[in-house]
Computed example of a mutant assay.
Amino acid sequence: MSKPMTKTQLVAALAEEMGSDKKAAGSALDAVVSIITREVAAGGAVTLPGVGKIYCRERPERMVRNPQTGEQMKKEADKVVKMTIAKALKDSVNG
């Protein structure tokens, strides 16, 4: 498995794809990330066409085990960010 693309590499690839400079591409990427973060934090969901859907899901209170001591303890209800991958992306990866 290869290394994941860094933000710098992503900005450079985005600038090349847009036919723009890296500063504009970086600003565009930061704006998209900001919009996604704000929407998901507010309880909404964002669909990126061809990539997937990012959403927040609430998890109920539950019992968990401390791996060091083996002690059972109650974990409070919390929220987790999930992503469902689009079928188009799965199909392109699987050939």
Rank of each mutant, 00 (worst) to 15 (best):
V80A: 11
A28Y: 10
P4W: 00
K82E: 02
M18Y: 08
A88S: 15
K82V: 00
N66S: 08
M83P: 12
T8D: 12
I36E: 00
M63V: 14
P49M: 07
N66D: 14
K23G: 09
P67K: 07
V81E: 04
R65G: 09
E71F: 04
A13P: 02
S92F: 05
S34Q: 09
P67T: 00
G19R: 05
A77Q: 06
D21L: 10
T69P: 04
M5V: 15
K75Y: 02
A25D: 01
A77T: 04
M63K: 10
E39Y: 03
D78I: 06
Y55V: 06
L89K: 06
A86E: 06
K7R: 08
R62H: 09
P60M: 11
L14Q: 00
V40Q: 02
V32D: 00
A86T: 07
G43E: 01
K7W: 08
T69H: 07
Q72A: 07
M83D: 02
T69S: 04
A25P: 01
A12G: 10
T8M: 10
T6M: 03
Q9D: 15
V32S: 05
K53L: 02
M83A: 15
R57Q: 12
G52I: 10
Q9L: 12
G44S: 08
A41T: 12
V40R: 02
D21K: 11
L89R: 03
G19Q: 01
G44M: 09
I35R: 06
S20I: 09
N94I: 10
E76K: 14
K53M: 05
K82A: 05
N66F: 13
A13M: 03
K79N: 08
R65S: 02
Y55P: 00
A28S: 11
I36N: 02
G52N: 06
L14V: 14
T84M: 15
G70D: 07
V51N: 05
K23A: 14
A42F: 06
Y55G: 00
K79I: 05
M73C: 01
L89W: 11
K7A: 05
K82I: 01
K90Y: 06
V40W: 05
I36G: 00
T8G: 13
T37F: 05
M73A: 07
K74T: 13
Q72T: 12
R59V: 12
I36P: 00
G52K: 12
M73K: 13
P49I: 13
R65Y: 11
